[in-house]
C-alpha cells in the first residue's frame, strides 16, 4: 500500500484510513485466528505427549522451536510489508527493522495464543505450559516469555489495539544503522497518533503508558533469546550450521 504523505498533524480521515489499513494487515497476516484459538483453548497435551517433548535431546528441541519461530517470523514479515509506507523504505531499512523487530512482534502476537487460566501456550496444535520446553535447557527464558504473555493478556487489548501496537514495535526509528531515520520517524509519529486516537475512541487512554512500558521488556527478552542461542551454538555449532532454518540464522546469529 502507498503511504499518503500529508501535513502534520495528520487529518482525521488519514488517521482512520491508516488505522483501518494496519488492522486489516494484522488480520490478514495472523498465523491463527482468535476464534480458532478460543475453540482449542482446552486442548491440552497429554502426559505422554509432554514426556515425548521432554525426552527430546537439547539440539532436537532447539531445532524444532527454531522451525516454529521461523514460521511465526514469516507471518510478521508479511505484516510489515502491508504496513503503509514500509515498502517505500530502502531495502536496508526494511531489513534493519525486521532484523531487530520481528522477534519482538512474535512475542507480542504470542499473547494471543496464551491461556492465562492455566498458563499454557498454543504450540504444535495444542496448549502446553513451560514444562513442554524443558529440554531446551533455558528455563529462565521460557519463564520470562510466559510472564510477558501473562502481562500482555492482563491489558486485554482488542485486535485493533494489538495491530497498532505491533506496528509501533516494528516501526522504531531508534534502531541502529537506519539510513533514512527521518522517514521511519515520520511513519512512527503517524502510528503514534493512530494509537492515541484509537485509545481515546475506546476510552482506554491509560493503556498508552502501559504499552510503551512493554517495549523495554521486549528488548530484554530478545537479548536473552540471542544470549541463549549463543550458548547453544557454542555447544552445538553443527546443528545451527546445518539444520537450523536459514532465515532464523540470518536474523538471530
Amino acid at each position: 500500500p502507498e503511504y499518503p504523505y500529508c501535513p502534520y498533524p495528520p487529518s482525521l480521515l488519514h488517521i482512520e484510513e491508516l488505522c483501518d489499513s494496519i488492522v486489516r494487515s494484522h488480520r490478514d497476516t495472523s498465523q491463527f485466528r482468535l476464534e480458532e484459538l478460543q475453540a482449542l483453548r482446552w486442548k491440552l497435551f497429554s502426559r505422554e505427549e509432554i514426556h515425548a517433548y521432554q525426552s527430546k535431546s537439547v539440539d532436537e528441541m532447539w531445532q524444532h522451536c527454531a522451525v516454529r519461530l521461523t514460521e511465526a517470523v514469516q507471518y510478521v514479515v508479511e505484516f510489515a510489508k502491508r504496513i503503509p509506507g514500509f515498502r517505500g523504505l530502502g531495502q536496508n531499512d526494511q531489513i534493519t527493522l525486521l532484523k531487530t523487530g520481528s522477534m519482538e512482534v512474535v512475542l507480542v502476537r504470542m499473547s494471543r495464543c496464551f491461556n492465562t487460566e492455566n498458563s499454557t501456550v498454543f504450540f504444535d496444535g495444542k496448549f502446553g505450559s513451560t514444562e513442554l520446553f524443558k529440554s531446551l535447557g533455558c528455563g529462565d527464558l521460557m519463564v520470562a516469555v510466559f510472564d510477558f504473555a501473562h502481562s500482555m493478556c492482563a491489558l486485554r487489548l482488542t485486535e485493533q489495539q494489538m495491530a497498532l501496537f505491533c506496528s509501533l514495535v516494528l516501526i522504531n526509528p531508534d534502531r541502529p544503522c537506519l539510513e533514512d531515520r527521518g522517514r521511519v520517524h515520520r511513519m512512527r509519529r503517524d502510528l503514534e497518533v493512530c494509537l492515541s486516537h484509537m485509545l481515546h475512541r475506546d476510552n482506554q487512554e491509560s493503556l498508552q503508558h502501559k504499552l510503551y512500558q512493554k517495549v523495554s521488556v521486549l528488548q530484554s527478552l530478545c537479548s536473552l533469546h540471542v544470549e541463549k542461542l549463543h550458548w547453544f551454538s557454542q555447544r552445538y555449532p553443527l546443528t545451527v550450521h546445518s539444520v537450523f532454518p536459514p532465515l532464523y540464522k540470518e536474523l538471530f546469529t
Partner: peptide, 17 residues
C-alpha cells in the same frame, strides 16, 4: 545487509499474496 540477509531480502521482494 542485503548480502547477509538473502532469504529476508527475497521475502521482502516477493509480492504480498
Amino acid at each position: 545487509l542485503k548480502e547477509k540477509h538473502k532469504i529476508l531480502h527475497r521475502l521482502l521482494q516477493n509480492s504480498t499474496s
